[in-house]
């Protein structure tokens, strides 16, 4: 009886801490427990909302901070337990420099890396989407390709135009060198008129992104993970063959 009472009575600060933890979990996740995290050999990174760069955006924006993503990628490259990276995108674009920095980091990672566009991979999300070893797009996901607009002070019109043109060139070069789309086709999509109400450009949906060569395949999570695991196995095999002196 005494034992039972002792069990039922919360005693020390440990229990209080645990209770606070549970309350916090309910507040944040809407449930009392989260699934236990078994060690995975895959790192899943999400690029959501605006890609935030040199300027902190107002709080109504959901942002992905590049200063956090970049060291995460370095850690993924260094960590021996991580064998592959899955990048899930649902972004509306953002800072050109930050987006290209992330895309460059992804493209130079030595571990297998698969990208999956869900919902949307717009504007600066396009180079990030094509940066991996293989890219997937969900059937209903969209990608908007449009010119870079001016935001800031115009000091001289020709100089400003040239600057924007160079910024666009950076994006175009990266996308065409990391996907099967040709420069002509990408620029045609970028400067198309009559499709977007507010802007020049094109919105491509799922299979259209694959048919123009921008994305490798239409697929969801299952296909993306299957491909990533296949590439991890292939990389392992290659390493073993390289290490085997015979």
């Amino acid at each position: 009886m005494n034992e039972l009472q002792a069990e039922q009575q919360p005693d020390t600060g440990d229990d209080k801490k645990k209770l606070n933890g549970i309350v916090e979990t309910i507040q944040q996740l809407g449930q009392t427990s989260v699934p236990s995290t078994a060690e995975s050999n895959i790192l899943c990174m999400t690029i959501i909302g605006q890609v935030e760069g040199h300027m902190v955006l107002p709080p109504q924006n959901k942002t992905t901070k590049y200063e956090h993503i970049i060291p995460q990628l370095v850690a993924a490259e260094q960590n021996q337990k991580i064998e592959g990276v899955l990048i899930v995108l649902n972004t509306v674009g953002g800072d050109v420099e930050a987006g290209l920095a992330i895309a460059e980091m992804i493209s130079t990672l030595s571990k297998p890396i698969v990208t999956l566009v869900l919902g949307g991979g717009h504007s600066i999300g396009v180079p990030i989407a094509v940066a991996g070893n293989m890219s997937f797009i969900a059937q209903t996901a969209t990608m908007t390709i449009h010119p870079i607009r001016m935001n800031g002070l115009v000091i001289g019109v020709p100089q400003t135009f040239e600057y924007l043109d160079k910024m666009q060139e950076r994006v175009t070069r990266f996308v065409t060198s990391h996907s099967n789309i040709t420069e002509e086709k990408f620029k045609e999509l970028m400067f198309k008129t009559g499709e977007l109400t507010r802007d020049i450009g094109t919105t491509i949906i799922g299979a259209d992104a694959v048919s123009c060569g921008l994305i490798d395949a239409v697929g969801g999570l299952g296909q993306a993970l299957k491909e990533l695991n296949r590439r991890i196995e292939a990389a392992k095999q290659q390493k073993e063959e390289g290490a085997d002196p015979s």
Partner: peptide, 21 residues
């Protein structure tokens, strides 16, 4: 800084000059 987004810039930058915590 150059923003390359399909969202209207007036929505993205709304309140940029407001006092923040």
């Amino acid at each position: 800084m150059t923003l390359y987004t399909n969202m209207p810039l007036e929505l993205v930058l709304e309140g940029i000059n407001d006092e923040r915590e």
